[in-house]
């Protein structure tokens, strides 16, 4: 009886897992299939081909989009880590006028839905003349309120005597942050890094608004435009372009799975 229940349990789990993994495996295999085969449920291509990738690469600047996405997401992540922890350090451990106001403002900002500020932000970018620039993709994301609150929370738990010792040892405040706090904050820094990078990497609505020039498009945007505009022409090609976006993430996920799960779940709970 107990045996049977375990078998049912694992069979159920396997079916569930297949539901989550199979579509991606099917997607990956379809990109190596000729058009006639795409409809098949089989995962091993009968007629293996790289045509889908050649076509995709030739028809739209995916290489360029990969560079754009990497550049934008990396810059944003570094900025959020460096500027965010400087802000969080001040908010957690320094006394200054306006600190309560800044705390309150940060929490308030998180409660305002993004849809409210989307259009005014867009008009701001237009007026700044930033349409079709990296600035439009990067600058509005240089600071992240969720990240600042998470870092602040973590920094609050570091003993005051460490700060005092470092001050007595003659360190400046930024130096305390980067040589004492950072090494102690690796868990929270990695959480912030992952969810910031993933957010920037997958963002599509904002680029769709502020970038029209193909050479400046990020991957998800180019992918969407490419698939919708009929540029792909076939299912295999459009899925092949999606692979450019998926593969780096899945590789990173395979290695840092635990960190990914903690990070993305953590950001949602805090944010």
């Amino acid at each position: 009886m107990k045996q049977l229940r375990r078998i049912v349990l694992y069979a159920g789990l396997s079916i569930a897992a297949i539901t989550f993994i199979y579509p991606f495996l099917w997607m990956a295999s379809s990109t190596f299939k000729p058009p006639v085969e795409v409809g098949s449920l089989a995962l091993i291509p009968h007629d293996f081909t790289l045509d889908n990738y050649r076509t995709m690469w030739a028809r739209a600047p995916f290489g360029r989009a990969l560079v754009n996405s990497t550049f934008v997401a990396t810059t944003i992540t570094l900025a959020v880590l460096v500027f965010g922890s400087m802000t969080a350090y001040a908010m957690a451990r320094l006394n200054f006028r306006g600190r309560p106001a800044l705390n309150a403002a940060t929490i308030a900002v998180l409660m305002v839905p993004g849809q409210l500020t989307l259009i005014p932000l867009y008009t701001l970018i237009v007026q700044l003349g930033w349409v079709d620039t990296y600035a439009a993709l990067i600058v509005p994301y240089l600071f992240n309120a969720t990240a600042i609150l998470m870092l602040r929370q973590f920094f609050l738990q570091i003993p005051q005597s460490l700060i005092d010792s470092a001050r007595m040892d003659g360190m400046s405040e930024p130096r305390i942050l980067f040589t004492i706090f950072w090494p102690l904050s690796k868990p929270v820094l990695s959480i912030v890094a992952i969810f910031t990078f993933m957010g920037a990497w997958n963002e599509v609505l904002w680029p769709l608004l502020v970038v029209r020039e193909q050479n400046l498009m990020t991957l998800p945007q180019l992918l969407t435009v490419f698939a919708l505009g009929g540029g792909a022409g076939s299912v295999g090609v459009s899925l092949a372009s999606a692979m450019v976006l998926v593969v780096p993430v899945v590789v990173a996920y395979a290695f840092l799975q635990r960190n990914f799960i903690e990070s993305m779940a953590g950001s949602g709970i805090k944010g």
């Binding site: 569930a16 897992a17 989550f20 993994i21 579509p23 991606f24 997607m27 993933m198 990497w201 997958n202 599509v204 991957l219 998800p220 992918l223 969407t224 698939a227 459009s238 899925l239 999606a242 976006l245 998926v246 993430v249 899945v250 996920y253 799975q257 990914f260 799960i261 993305m264």
Partner: peptide, 16 residues
């Protein structure tokens, strides 16, 4: 396995 789709871009999921 269950978490995998969470890390994939919504655009990709929609196309898939």
């Amino acid at each position: 396995a269950f978490f995998l789709p969470v890390v994939i871009s919504g655009a990709v999921v929609a196309i898939l």
